[in-house]
Amino acid sequence: MKTKKNTKEGTIIAPPIREVFYSGSELSYTFNDLTPLKFYHVFVWGINAYGTEGYRSFTNNTFMHASPYADQEKPTPPLHLTASYSTMNGNLLVFFNLSSDNNKVDHYIVTINDSVIRKNASPILGFHSITHPLQRNIPYTVSVYAVDPDNNRSSVVSIHGTTSDEDTQDSPPTDSYVLQAKRTENNTAQLTWGYIHNARYLCIAYYLITENGEIEQPLVHTAGKSIGVDLHNIQPDKKYKVAVIGVNSYGNTGTLKFIEF
């Protein structure tokens, strides 16, 4: 006696946990945020311009699941996101410090008024500086987030502004000279420098010097128009190299001059 099947191939017997409308041309799709070791059943079907649905093909009883060894940790959000507009050349200058991750950051997604820019995550000084053309006298929103190789995404950081703001002088920032880098208590160093003219913001880059004299990837801070800052997480038995440069609204910078402490 044959047992009658209650369902047939391609029939959904329960509400789906997720439906995705995909209109791309690639013959593949990546599902994110899957639960490790939990089984999933995937159906695919087409819909034409009149709303007629095709037959639902599926994974032929081969269940997929997220690997328990996949990276599930999100990168930290990018830091110190700033933007300034150049009325001379019509460009928006976007600046942000890098995120950190338990593995590495693969790339950053920057959105400027719904225009998406992809940037690789290997700048020289530990930050990104992006120049993007933008019309005059309009508001703008800049958003950025980091993505690691397993497609984990950091939180989105956003700022708002308008291109009608008065920008800074076209003159490049004056060179900085660090007056003092003094170690203080609680793994902190107090850094002071001379005032930098024509700068919209400041970039402070400090490198850890290894035992063989090489320097590691720097930590980078931004500041307004101050003449001092506290550097945190300074190891008392390590040597550091530090420099301060100014950045104006056109992306021009002063000359890097390092000191060691």
Rank of each mutant, 00 (worst) to 15 (best):
Q190D: 08
S164D: 14
G246D: 04
R200M: 04
R153Y: 00
K238D: 04
T222G: 12
G224D: 08
V220W: 07
K238F: 09
T210K: 14
V229L: 11
G213S: 04
V220Q: 07
H232K: 10
Q190T: 04
D230I: 00
S171G: 03
A199N: 11
Y206D: 06
I215H: 09
K239S: 12
H221W: 10
I159W: 07
Q217H: 08
R183H: 04
V157P: 04
I215V: 15
G194M: 10
I204W: 05
V242A: 13
N233F: 13
Y195S: 13
I209Q: 11
N198D: 13
A189F: 05
L191G: 01
T210S: 15
E211C: 05
Y195A: 14
P218E: 00
H221M: 12
A205T: 04
V178T: 15
G224N: 07
P236A: 07
T184K: 06
R183K: 11
D167L: 00
S226Q: 02
L179M: 09
L202V: 03
W193A: 07
G228T: 03
N198S: 08
Y201D: 07
I245S: 06
V229W: 03
E185V: 02
V247Q: 05
E185R: 01
A189L: 06
N152C: 08
N152V: 01
P236H: 06
H160Y: 13
Y201M: 11
K238C: 07
V244I: 06
E216S: 10
W193D: 06
A199L: 07
G194T: 10
L219W: 08
G246P: 03
T210N: 15
L208Y: 10
N152F: 02
V247R: 07
E166R: 04
L208H: 12
V229S: 01
V178P: 08
E214N: 15
I234Y: 03
I245C: 06
V247T: 06
D237H: 11
V157H: 05
N152E: 09
E214C: 11
T184E: 10
Q235L: 15
V178R: 09
L179C: 03
S171D: 12
T162D: 15
V242S: 10
D148E: 08
E166P: 00
L231Y: 02
E211I: 12
Q235P: 02
V220S: 10
T163S: 15
N233Y: 13
S171R: 08
A223M: 11
D150L: 05
V157T: 14
